[in-house]
Every structure is written in C-alpha cells, then in structure tokens.
Computed example of a mutant assay.
Amino acid sequence: MTRQQVARLQGARDISPDTSDIPTPGPRDVVIRVAVCGICGTDLAFYRHGSTPKGAVLGHEFSGRVVAIGTDVTGVAVGRRVVVNPMHDGMGLGQVPGAFAQYVRLGNAELGRNLFELPDAITDEAGALIEPFAVGLHAVNNAKVTPDDRTVIYGAGTIGLCVLAALRARGVRDILVIDISDRRLEFARRMGATAIHNSSTGSAPAFVGSHFGTESLRYAQEPVGLASVVFDCAGVRPALRDAVHSLAPRGRLVIVADPHDNDLPNLRFVMLRELVVMGALAYESEFPEVIDLIASGKIDLSPIVTHRFPLSRITEAFRIQIDPEEAVKVLVLAD
C-alpha cells in the first residue's frame, strides 16, 4: 500500500477526506501510524476562516505507533507507541502535514524532545489528550499555584477542563468554574470543581465573591471578588472583564485562551489593584509529567471526550466540534 487517507482543509468550513502518498522517513525522521487525533481549538480557528494553504492537513493532538525510522534516528524502535510535541516544527498547524491522516512523518525526531513513548497504562485515546492537558498544566505551572490558592477558571471547554484537572493534580482545594453553557459546566462539576456558575444568569464576580469574599471599591460599580488566581480559558472580552473584577489585590490573571480582542479591559483597574497579568502559551517541558500523571491514574481526562468519528467522517466531526453545546472534545480515529 502506497496511498493513505487524509483530511484536507480546502477553505473556510470546508474539510473533507482525500488521499496522499504514505510518507517515507528521511535520515532523521520517523513515520507514525496514527491511532487517534483530537480536534483542537486551533484546528477550529483554521476551519472557521480557511486560514491555511489550500489542502492543508491539520491535526496535532494525537497518538500512534512508529512504523518506520530514518537511518540517523536513535533510541526509537519500530512498534513503539508514541505521542508528539508538535511545537518544534508546527506539525498540523497549516504548513507541515498533521495527523488527520493514517500516517504522518515527524522530522528531526528525537526521543524526549519532540517524541515521547507511551507506557502500556495509557490508551491511545488518553494519549491523544496528552497535548491539551500539557497546555493546562503549563498554565498552572506558570501561575506557580499552591494548594491554598483561591482559583477561578473562566471557560469550561477542553483547555479550561484541563486546567481544572491540573489544579486538582496540584492539590488545589478551591476551584470555581464559570461558563455560559450548563452542559459544559456539568462536565466541570463531574471533574471536581468546587462550584460552577453560568454567567448568563448573574454576575460572575458576585459569584466569586460569594465563595471567596468581596471588596467594595469607589472606582468599581459592584463589589469585586477576592480570588488569588484566575485563568481565562474563554478568550472573549466579557470573560476577561469579569476575570479582572474577580481578583484580590496582587492577584494573578493567567491568559490561556487566544484573546478575540487585543486589549485588556480596564487597565487602570489592573494598575490600581496591582494585578499580575501573564500569558501561558502551549507548553515547555510538561509532556513527561503529563504522561506520568495519566499513567499513574491521578488524572482521568476521559470524561471530556463526547464524540468519536472515523477519519472518513471528518466533515461531520468538525461540524459537531464547532458547536459548543454539542461537544467538548471530539476524537478522530484513523481508519
């Protein structure tokens, strides 16, 4: 067999099955038979706008098995189950072909850098969740969270729920989750949130205040909450505004989602409260810890998987994933 099935993004909201040659490895490459690949928020952004070269193969949250190895690659054996850190070469992000395919080539493969072996305790599906959980863990690591922190998560999508799982892994006891979807909030409750709140039904800062206390300020229209750390996993202006008004003096605001707007609401408030605003971009060295946490059973991300589709039904998979009331995490299974 020399041909494989892939999914190509041809334009805005236009992704469909196609075929391509099965890749072969160069001297420093490995070829991986894809098992499972998740649809990421980044994939959805490309899908909404068609903002990749025509015919791009997306997909970077995946697990699979090594089937071919270049002559210069060491420490990797054919047959080993693996996951990939795609940030080194942008695999599946528009330029380098990704894992919405049956086979994918990883360039400059190096065990422990962009390639990681999966222990038997981690299933293929759990392996495909390692990459998004690394995003959540990196955000928690950036914030230097302690078990005593009073934490809030705005946004209960995949990344927000991964932040929740990471906080619980760190022993944090007080975790509030805020969203506008009752369905997604129910997932947060099942995964251990202390309390949940639909911000379309009432003030989010007031909800935070009901758990962590409030402070009335002459320059704020309503009392502000006293959380010590807030994670913005929503990326929309109303959530950012509420996040700023949920923090105690010198509190930390961690921007995890890619903001839809390029300005932070109420910068004067940030200054007056001496808030610390930080970003959390993807991950750095979190993959080994993530693998250990999942393999040990300390973290179970399976509740966030709501749908599974074969690669041949990629069009339907994206249609479902883009609806936040329909899906949390959609997995695509290589045929």
Rank of each mutant, 00 (worst) to 15 (best):
R3T: 04
R8N: 09
L9H: 02
Q10L: 11
Q10V: 10
P25L: 13
G26M: 05
R28V: 10
R28D: 03
R33S: 02
C37P: 04
Y47G: 07
R48L: 04
G50Q: 07
K54I: 00
A56F: 10
L58P: 08
G59A: 02
G59D: 02
E61R: 00
R65I: 10
V67Y: 11
G70E: 01
G92V: 07
Q95Y: 13
A101Y: 06
Y103G: 15
R105Y: 04
G107H: 10
A109W: 08
E110M: 09
L111H: 07
L118W: 04
I122F: 08
D124I: 09
A126C: 09
G127S: 14
P132L: 13
V135A: 15
H138G: 02
A139W: 08
N141R: 14
N142M: 11
K144T: 00
V145N: 15
D148Y: 02
D148W: 06
D149R: 05
V152T: 12
G155T: 14
A156E: 12
I159N: 05
A166M: 05
L167E: 01
R173D: 10
L176I: 15
D179L: 01
I180M: 06
S181N: 03
R189Q: 07
T194Q: 09
I196K: 03
I196M: 03
N198A: 14
S203R: 02
P205V: 15
V208Q: 15
S210G: 13
F212W: 12
T214K: 06
S216W: 14
S216F: 13
L217P: 05
A227F: 03
S228D: 04
V229N: 00
V236A: 03
A239E: 00
H245V: 00
V256R: 02
P259Q: 09
N266T: 05
R273K: 12
M278W: 02
G279W: 12
G279E: 12
A282V: 07
E284G: 11
P288N: 11
I291M: 15
I299G: 04
L301D: 04
T306I: 12
H307P: 13
H307I: 11
I314N: 01
T315S: 01
Q321G: 07
Q321C: 03
P324T: 05
K329R: 06
L331R: 06
